[in-house]
């Protein structure tokens, strides 16, 4: 393999593969939403699109050394001595407003729970959007007898007798 490509993959794709996957998933979703003719396939694209964003947010909160974000006073010694390397929260370290004092919580031991909690809300929003869209597509199917967009548009033409 070309060494330039190899270094590119090593530097940019391998350490950030979750972000690449999110971008690829998002593009798949967008492609399906824009180009597919069947309304149900558009909805599948929409679900993929929303899931990609959830993956992105979940990736933000992950740190290499961190465990689940539940503060326990006994179990926290396990993680001591582990190398501190925050990958995805790369820049949040120097600018994070969470100034936890040393004697209380070591922020590298805990995954950031906030993006995950945000995604709980986003999942709920996504589910209700999908549910509503399914209900609407049912209504469309009842009145047009099809879910293919071109057939529906044909039936809406002024000349047709539907």
């Amino acid at each position: 393999m070309d060494p330039i490509i190899a270094t590119f993959i090593e530097d940019n794709i391998v350490p950030k593969f979750n972000y690449w996957i999110y971008v690829i998933l998002m593009m798949i979703g967008l492609y399906a939403m824009i180009t597919k003719n069947n309304l149900m396939k558009k909805l599948i694209g929409m679900a993929i699109f929303q899931t990609a964003i959830i993956l992105f947010y979940v990736s933000i909160g992950v740190k290499d050394t961190a465990g689940i974000p539940i503060i326990s006073h006994h179990g926290s010694e396990h993680h001591q001595g582990a190398t501190v390397h925050s990958e995805s929260g790369s820049s949040s370290e120097e600018v994070s407003p969470v100034k936890v004092k040393n004697n209380t919580i070591d922020k590298d031991k805990y995954a950031n729970p906030l993006p995950h909690v945000l995604m709980l809300t986003a999942i709920v929003v996504g589910v209700s959007t999908l549910g509503l869209a399914l209900a609407i597509s049912q209504k469309i199917f009842k009145s047009f007898g099809t879910l293919e967009e071109d057939e529906i548009l044909n039936k809406l033409r002024p000349g047709s007798h539907d």
Binding site: I53, F56, Y57, I60, G89, S90, S91, S92, V95, S96, P97, V98, L114, P115
Partner: peptide, 10 residues
């Protein structure tokens, strides 16, 4: 999300 990565607040 990108804003949150950089600033850590919402």
């Amino acid at each position: 999300g990108y804003l949150y990565i950089k600033t850590g607040t919402l």
